[in-house]
């Protein structure tokens, strides 16, 4: 085997030169290649509009409902090509995408949120055990399991969204900006739980974040995406010490607030 093929065999997810078109005209990502090692944790970083969510939707199959499609490239999961499969089938295979914005089922209780996501074929006993497993990871949810999910706090809703995804029995969990709008202590708590699940269950994780500082603390390596292209791929250690990353994403440099950092980052791009 060539080294490249060997690397692919060790990956649970392998995405090769993927191009995505929305509405047949808008080219949102332009040849993105990403590998997620089996049991590994990888971050996908980048600013607003870079193409992070589009990349996740290409993997989960949720592109279709947004009138997007993969116009080039191939995605394989656990050795089989999934590029054209419907989203539901990908969930059954073990890919679950926690979409942006903590979209819990608001009018259901947390308990019902978890039940809704359980595979149809799961029997009662397993269902109960699985819910229990998730309440152990997220004790805050257990306390509020019978209140209406729409009235949970932001952190609790994010925990519920993750717990709900875990009910589908994924082998690859993809999280789209789970830290958005959450207090730092909650981000630490949630990322800690994700790390724990990754360690204990061997769950592979692909984490999309604008909050690079927090993300790079828990992943082994990261990709940086800009304007629909991967512009950097390195270990988390190397990325953390990279001066450009520090300047733009870790809050270093001369900019003093988020708005300025974003503004500045729009002027200077790695590729354009």
């Amino acid at each position: 085997m060539t080294p490249a093929l060997e690397k692919e065999a060790a990956s649970i997810l392998s995405m090769n030169s993927i191009e995505v078109l929305y509405d047949n005209v808008m080219l949102a990502i332009k040849g993105v290649s990403i590998q997620v090692p089996r049991g590994g944790m990888v971050a996908l970083l980048g600013s607003n509009g870079a193409g992070k969510s589009t990349t996740l939707k290409a993997i989960s199959g949720l592109l279709k409902v947004e009138r997007g499609r993969i116009s080039r490239g191939e995605i394989s999961f656990d050795g089989s090509v999934i590029t054209g499969l419907p989203a539901q089938q990908r969930v059954e295979m073990g890919i679950c995408h926690v979409i942006e914005g903590r979209r819990v089922f608001e009018h259901l209780t947390p308990d019902e949120n978890l039940e809704a996501a359980a595979p149809v074929s799961m029997n009662r006993a397993t269902l109960k055990a699985e819910k229990q497993r998730i309440y152990e990871y997220f004790p805050r949810l257990a306390e509020r399991k019978n209140s209406q999910a729409g009235y949970l706090s932001g952190g609790e809703q994010q925990m519920l969204a993750i717990g709900r995804a875990l009910m589908t029995q994924p082998r690859l969990l993809m999280l789209d900006e789970p830290s958005l709008g959450l207090a730092p202590f909650l981000v630490t708590e949630i990322f800690g739980i994700i790390r724990r699940i990754n360690k204990e269950q061997g769950l592979s994780v692909l984490l999309v974040e604008q909050n690079a500082l927090a993300a790079l603390e828990i992943v082994s390596d990261g990709y940086l995406i800009e304007n629909g292209r991967v512009v950097m791929h390195d270990t988390a250690q190397a990325l953390k010490s990279n001066s450009d990353i520090q300047e733009f994403y870790l809050g270093g440099g001369s900019a003093t607030n988020f708005h300025e950092i974003k503004h500045y980052s729009r002027r200077k791009r790695w590729l354009s």
Partner: peptide
């Protein structure tokens, strides 16, 4: 029932339903 809960989930959010494999 479990089926009824899934229907209520669909009523709440199509995209979130698709994301967890609900048809």
């Amino acid at each position: 029932t479990r089926l009824g809960i899934r229907l209520r989930a669909i009523a709440d959010d199509y995209m979130a339903s698709w994301s967890v494999g609900i048809s």
